[in-house]
Nucleic acid binder design. Structure first.
Ligand SMILES: [Zn+2]
Length: 165
DNA sequence: CGCATTTGACCTGCGC
DNA sequence: GCGCAGGTCAAATGCG
């Protein structure tokens, strides 16, 4: 717990936007190939266990095991709905990086599958998905509304393949 | 030729 | 019931 990150002790959910993110220095592209293949992959893989990972490069880290349950397993009549029971745990990790471009190559192959405009924001939202088959990992990239020089990258899911290239 | 990218349409969930 | 917002898919195109 050397890192200074009040994961659950957020004294003021209002600052949940970007308060502690002032000393972000992304001079160069860092070792994307490094933190991506080693740290990032490990983080996302074992996030629910160790949420106190380095945050020097990242500004915001959010992990939420959002389970999409179906509260209506009622087979009304003849309509055999899924059996549910298995919660859909989708690891969601959001990173706020200071970058002027959105094409931050994290080492994985992403295939853009949609672009949407965020209401309340003149910036579009890009939806990416892992090109690797069997990889339910999705990536969402959006520019900050008040800080266009910041980019929010949200990863959803876990890579089922160690190699990305 | 294969694949990534693009844009619009379409679907779903929620709110009112 | 309709509208809005968000998300996803699909066809076409361009590029490598
Ligand atoms: Zn993947």
């Amino acid at each position: 717990m050397a890192e200074s990150y009040p994961n659950t002790n957020m004294p003021g959910s209002t600052m949940d936007r970007y308060n502690y993110s002032a000393n972000l220095e992304f001079s160069d592209f860092f070792d994307f190939t490094d933190w991506t293949k080693g740290d990032l992959a490990l983080i996302v893989s074992g996030y629910p266990e160790s949420q106190n990972y380095a945050a020097n490069d990242v500004v915001n880290s959010r992990g939420s095991s959002s389970y999409h349950e179906d509260p209506n397993n009622i087979a009304a009549s003849g309509d055999s709905r899924s059996v549910m029971g298995e919660k859909q745990i989708t690891e969601k990790v959001a990173f706020k990086t200071k970058s002027e471009i959105e094409i931050l190559d994290d080492g994985f192959k992403w295939r853009k599958y949609g672009k949407k405009m965020v209401k309340n924001s003149p910036n579009p939202r890009n939806y990416y998905k892992c090109s690797i088959e069997g990889c339910p990992v999705k990536k969402r990239i959006e520019r900050d509304k008040e800080d266009p020089r910041y980019v929010v990258t949200t990863y959803e899911g876990i890579h089922n393949h160690s190699s990305q290239n």
